[in-house]
C-alpha cells in the first residue's frame, strides 16, 4: 500500500430523496479503489461539513436534484472553509443548469457533472485533482 487511499464523502444535501445516482457514483468510486463515506439522503450543510471534517476526506461529492443547490452549496463551502478544509476537492452532480456553473466554480466547486457523465470521467477527475 504505497499509494494513499483517496477518501470521498458522497452526500445528498437538501430534500429530494432520490439517491440512485449518488449510489451509482459511490459504487464506481469504490470500484476505482476509493473509500467512500456515504451518509444517506436529506443532509443539511452542517451535517455534510461536519462529516467531511470528522472523516478527513480528500473529496466531497454532492448530488442534488431539487434545484436548491444555489442555496445549499454556498453554505457548505462556507462551513468547509470555517473548518479549515479549503484544500478539499469539492465536486457536484445532479440537475445543475449551465448558467449556475460559473458561480459554483467561483465558490470553489471544481467539477460539475451533469446526467449521463460516464463514471470513468468522474473517477479520473478525482484522481487528478484530489489533494
Amino acid at each position: 500500500m504505497t499509494e494513499r487511499t483517496i477518501r470521498v464523502l458522497v452526500a445528498k444535501p437538501g430534500l429530494d430523496g432520490h439517491d440512485r445516482g449518488a449510489k451509482v457514483i459511490a459504487r464506481a468510486l469504490r470500484d476505482a479503489g476509493m473509500e467512500v463515506v456515504y451518509t444517506g439522503i436529506r443532509q443539511t450543510p452542517e451535517m455534510i461539513a461536519e462529516a467531511a471534517l470528522q472523516e478527513d476526506v480528500d473529496v466531497v461529492g454532492m448530488s442534488i436534484l431539487s434545484g436548491a443547490h444555489m442555496a445549499l452549496f454556498p453554505k457548505i463551502m462556507e462551513l468547509l472553509g470555517e473548518y479549515g478544509m479549503d484544500d478539499v476537492l469539492v465536486v457536484a452532480g445532479g440537475i445543475i443548469p449551465d448558467e449556475d456553473v460559473p458561480t459554483l466554480n467561483a465558490l470553489g466547486i471544481q467539477g460539475i457533472f451533469g446526467p449521463g457523465t460516464p463514471t470513468d470521467r468522474i473517477v479520473e477527475f478525482i484522481r487528478e485533482h484530489a489533494r
Binding site: R30, G33, E35, V36, V37, Y38, G40
Partner: peptide, 10 residues
C-alpha cells in the same frame, strides 16, 4: 478494488 463503501453514518 481495495475500495470500500462506508455506510454506518446513515
Amino acid at each position: 478494488s481495495g475500495g470500500a463503501i462506508l455506510g454506518d453514518r446513515i
